[in-house]
Design a protein around this nucleic acid. Structure first.
Length: 266
DNA sequence: GCGACAG
DNA sequence: ATCTTGTCGC
């Protein structure tokens, strides 16, 4: 019931215990879905990230990227007040609806994989925001987080011993099952000191997820893979423009986006 | 009871 | 996530 898109609608009650129950309920499906292998090498990716405006609330971005060259094909904006405060472990119930609206605004409704700013199954109930979204849309999804949420970090090698980058320096091990690896701790670039955490959301294995993210990191100007990099840059820029009065929410609903690219990206 | 705690 | 001063390096 809760992996069919309900995460995107706000018809559910926001009782904390209920939300936790919902996540426990989809956890089995999530864990079985990450056993799947990718049938085709993905060519396009959808990056999802959100920033916050003091005046208008959440600013979510869906950025469609050409994986071969990290080029931005198109992006869409969604602005609105989050229905839930931020609670560690329940991020999906705060941001997923905004992402859904942003995705609906894209001209191209075709993409091969989704990259979300946050965790996938490296979550106390194996249901991070990337997992919720991947199951709801029945698409391969990957979580890329800047900080750990759940799991025991097992260091595989020191950052200094990395020869090539991206470099996997560790794994996030499930606290309840020491044989289950939930995510890889990755140093994206030689210059980066702290790792990012790459975990499968749904319909993709950890190793396939890493292969996809690794190829993106090689072409990305940031420690974040390009889809998330664009979504991060755009959401922050727009949130600030909104608060400064430079941008109006109305301008986005009218599709006046193309001319903003040069101004927004960078 | 005490720490940990995505964005 | 956001806020915000100061510092380091190209």
């Amino acid at each position: 019931m809760w992996d069919g898109g309900e995460i995107f609608t706000q018809k559910h009650s926001l009782n904390i215990d209920t939300l936790i129950h919902i996540q426990k309920k989809i956890s089995e499906k999530a864990l079985s879905s990450i056993k799947a292998r990718l049938s085709r090498t993905p060519r396009t990716a959808l990056g999802l990230d959100a920033a916050y405006s003091k005046r208008y609330g959440g600013v979510a971005i869906a950025a469609l990227v050409d994986i071969s060259n990290c080029g931005l094909i198109e992006y869409s904006v969604s602005i609105g007040e989050p229905k839930l405060e931020y609670i560690p472990g329940l991020l999906a119930f705060r941001e997923a609806a905004l992402f859904y609206t942003a995705i609906q605004g894209l001209k191209h409704q075709s993409y091969d994989v989704i990259v979300v700013d946050g965790h996938g199954v490296s979550h106390p109930r194996y249901a991070g925001i990337a997992t919720h979204i991947g199951l709801a849309l029945a698409k391969p999804s990957i979580g890329v987080a800047k900080k750990k949420l759940y799991g025991v970090l097992k260091i595989i090698k020191s950052r200094e011993s990395c020869r090539d980058f991206p470099c996997v320096i560790g794994e996030l091990i499930d606290k309840k099952r020491s044989d289950l690896v939930l995510a890889y701790a990755v140093i994206p670039k030689c210059r980066d000191k702290s790792p990012i955490y790459v975990s499968p959301g749904a319909h993709i294995s950890l190793d396939d997820a890493y292969r996809v993210i690794s190829s993106m990191l090689e072409k990305s100007p940031s420690k974040l893979p390009c889809p998330t990099y664009y979504a991060d840059k755009l959401s922050k820029k727009i949130a600030r423009g909104l608060d400064a009065g430079t941008l109006s929410p109305r301008s986005f609903k009218l599709g006046v986006l193309s001319t903003l690219d040069k101004y927004l990206i960078r």
